[in-house]
Design a protein around this nucleic acid. Structure first.
Length: 654
RNA sequence: GUUGUCGUGGCCCAGUGGUAGGGCGUUGCAUUGGUAAUGCAGAGGUCGCGAGUUCAAAUCUCGCCGAUAACACCA
């Protein structure tokens, strides 16, 4: 007897073995038709996977999120099958489902973008044939024989039997005992871990998107393969929606908004470095001052340190050995100097500048210094990856015993900024000891435990990335997403056992003996440039009032109203608001459209005869109800008090 | 860094070997208008830089610079 527990707690019993499809049938024929896969004890499995032991099972239909991944993986296999029909000489390599779709890497030099419709048509045929997707097993020699002309699959088979597939490649195959697992439909068969849809006919809406290049197994020494990206959804309408969303998202690109709103510019003479124009710098400075204000609460002391240092500093810190290629190095009177890529070493010099007592710890030093990193040209991207930037950087020197408490305060700081103020979602990663590292096991144990303990107390979800820590200590990274859902690391909290050692930092403890402090690197916004870029995309350029470069725009109805407009402007400016006027010789409607599309003020005042007569202002807000912007008239005093309240509460309205 | 694509007035873009174009913006004049774009006139470009092919290059070839997408990188 096999006991099957369903998600609702119901238990079904089967004689001998069964599978998910039979279980579905035992509930209803309709369910069996809808089912695409199952979760057996939480593990994604095929409908036909044999079940011999008691287990919990969840039947997956297109309504489950997990089923989408399976759909996309099967679509990738259908692509590979079609590819083989259109280009018989093409060698298929690996093709996983990814966020938003799937890709498949193929070695086929003649493949170009204009071939995609042909391949799609072939895929359509395969779907129409509604082939059964079947699992099978081959011995290693059979598997090698099957892929004898494909050196890529051969390599995967060897890695599989050696157990050396990378984390990303895990989906590419599995070997049970000595048997290599294959999935196939019709004339096609591929090494794969699965699971897959039971039939190709279940694929209803897919699209091949683009062809790019990717190194075989991510190694720059290897050949660049053609990577074909595609996506699939359960419904045509979802597919269409997906592409419309991408189209809309592109309009939010910070590079486009930055140009339209005159926030910043770039120049080919300064690649990877941003020119902040008056409005952009207004936002930048406001962000910086926002953090400065919080430094009072969290007791950070701001310092300013040099931008360039003698190479000797970098030799002491170890950057010269490990990071030199990423630094801008030049000659000063026969000595090698470098622009600083980070602030930590100069803060170590500050710590060392005096005799330190335990009473001074934790010592928290903040620095908005400009950092220069010689990033590879191909890595540069708008303001999200630049060569010159500045962080809301700080270093905390403390005892090991103080670490957990300090980390907790940093976590609170980060959460206040992202969650309370910006309402931005963020993801947390805890990275633990890598293979190459400094510091004793005992210190790493303590450090990792402190970080985890502080994180656990927040109750927030976090991902543990084993082995991803820096060689000098474990770290917590925070990631946010841009308009195209690409993730960017912003905030970071890192422990460092290396620099205190290299700089021979010491303090005198309660027993008047010397002790080495622990160093915590932390940034909340991270690179201000990057944060601003992602923030612009999150807000689509519509900044909250406290940040907006143009808080109120005043539009006159006719020339004779200019004096009144200026009067109102003066009152607003005297109350501390940023105001622009548009007295251009254009219709009111056009000027409103310009404000909405380009200047994006929080409030637009349209002032004419009626306002002069009543002594009031007509206000147009950004808030849209039933397709119309909310408008009201009020006295200027009332309007100003509304503005003051909104600004000081840092509330976010769209 | 690698591979692909791109670089034409301030911005967006058309122009596939034969006298540099359009829209937006800008300047001037007229219009003085109440919520999605008034009319007319003008200014503004050695087509990223350099070399080559050609009678002739924005256009073809090569090199360089920059941007962009993907990969790699991000102690």
């Amino acid at each position: 007897m096999v006991k099957i527990t369903l998600p609702d707690g119901n238990i079904k019993e089967f004689e001998n073995s069964t599978n998910a499809l039979e279980i579905a049938r035992s509930i209803s024929e309709g369910l069996a038709r809808m089912c695409v896969a199952a979760k057996i004890n939480g593990v994604l499995s095929d409908l036909t996977t044999t079940i011999e032991d008691d287990c919990e099972i969840e039947l997956l239909t297109p309504k489950n999120v997990e089923s989408l991944e399976i759909l996309r993986h099967t679509t990738a296999h259908v692509f590979a099958q079609a590819m083989g029909r259109v280009f018989p000489n093409a060698k298929i390599t690996i093709g996983p489902a990814i966020e938003g779709g799937f890709y498949y890497d193929v070695d086929c030099d003649e493949l170009v973008e204009s071939d995609l419709p042909k391949i799609e048509a072939e895929m359509q045929k395969i779907i129409k044939e509604n082939l059964d997707v079947k699992k099978s097993f081959k011995s290693k020699s059979e598997a090698l024989e099957f892929f004898k002309d494909n050196e890529y699959k051969t390599e995967i088979i060897e890695s599989l039997s050696a157990g050396t597939l990378s984390e990303e490649e895990k989906g590419e195959g599995s070997v049970i005992g000595d048997e290599f697992q294959f999935y196939g439909q019709g004339d096609f068969s591929d090494l794969c871990r699965g699971p897959h849809l039971p039939r190709t006919g279940l694929i209803k809406a897919f699209k091949l998107e683009k062809i790019t290049k990717a190194y075989w197994r991510g190694n720059t020494e290897n050949k660049q393969l053609n990577r074909v990206y595609g996506t699939a959804f359960w419904k045509k309408s979802e597919l269409i929606e997906h592409f419309e969303m991408l189209q809309e998202a592109k309009k939010r690109d910070h590079r486009i908004i930055g140009k339209k709103m005159d926030l910043f510019m770039t120049h080919e003479y300064a690649p990877g470095m941003t020119f902040f124009l008056p409005k952009g710098f207004q936002v930048y400075r406001t962000l910086q001052n926002f953090i400065r204000d919080l430094y009072k609460k969290y007791e950070f002391k701001e310092v300013m340190t040099p931008n360039m240092f003698n190479k000797k500093l970098w030799e002491t810190s170890g950057h010269w050995e490990h990071y030199k290629d990423d630094m801008f190095v030049f000659d000063v009177e026969g000595q090698e100097f470098s622009l600083k890529p980070m602030n930590c070493p100069s803060h170590c010099l500050i710590f060392k500048n005096d005799f330190r007592s335990y009473k001074e710890l934790p010592m928290r030093i903040a620095d908005f210094g400009a950092l220069h990193r010689n990033e590879l040209s191909g890595a540069l991207s708008g303001m999200t990856r630049v060569r010159k930037f500045c962080q809301d950087d700080a270093h905390i020197f403390c005892t090991m015993a103080q670490v957990e408490d300090e980390i907790a305060k940093c976590l609170e700081f980060v959460d206040y900024v992202y969650n309370d103020v910006f309402k931005m979602d963020y993801e947390i990663e805890l990275s633990t000891r890598p293979e190459k590292r400094v510091g004793s096991e005992e210190v790493w144990d303590k450090a990792e435990k402190s970080l985890a303990a502080a994180l656990d107390k927040t109750g927030k979800k976090y991902e543990i990335c084993e082995g991803d820590g820096a060689f000098y200590g474990p770290k917590i990274d925070f990631r946010i997403r841009d308009c195209l859902k690409r993730v960017w690391q912003t905030a970071t909290i890192q422990l460092d056992f290396n620099l205190p050692d290299r700089f021979d930092l010491k303090f005198q403890n309660e027993n008047s003996t010397e002790e080495q402090p622990v160093m915590i690197h932390r940034a909340v916004l991270g690179s201000l440039e990057r944060f601003m870029a992602v923030m612009i995309e999150n807000f689509a350029g519509k900044f909250p009032l406290w940040l907006a470069p143009n808080q109120v725009e005043i539009i006159n109805v006719a020339d004779r109203h200019q004096d009144y407009c200026n009067e109102i402007k003066t009152k607003l400016v005297e109350s501390g608001f940023r105001v622009e006027t548009n007295f251009d010789n254009l219709g009111v409607g056009k000027k409103i459209a310009i404000a909405r599309d380009e200047r994006k003020p929080n409030y637009t005042l349209v002032l004419g005869d009626e306002n002069i007569k009543e002594g009031n202002v007509s206000v147009r807000t950004r808030e849209v109800v039933n397709g119309r912007n909310v408008e009201f008239t009020s006295s200027i005093e009332e309007f100003i008090s509304r503005l003051v309240e909104e600004r000081d509460s840092k509330s976010i309205t769209f």
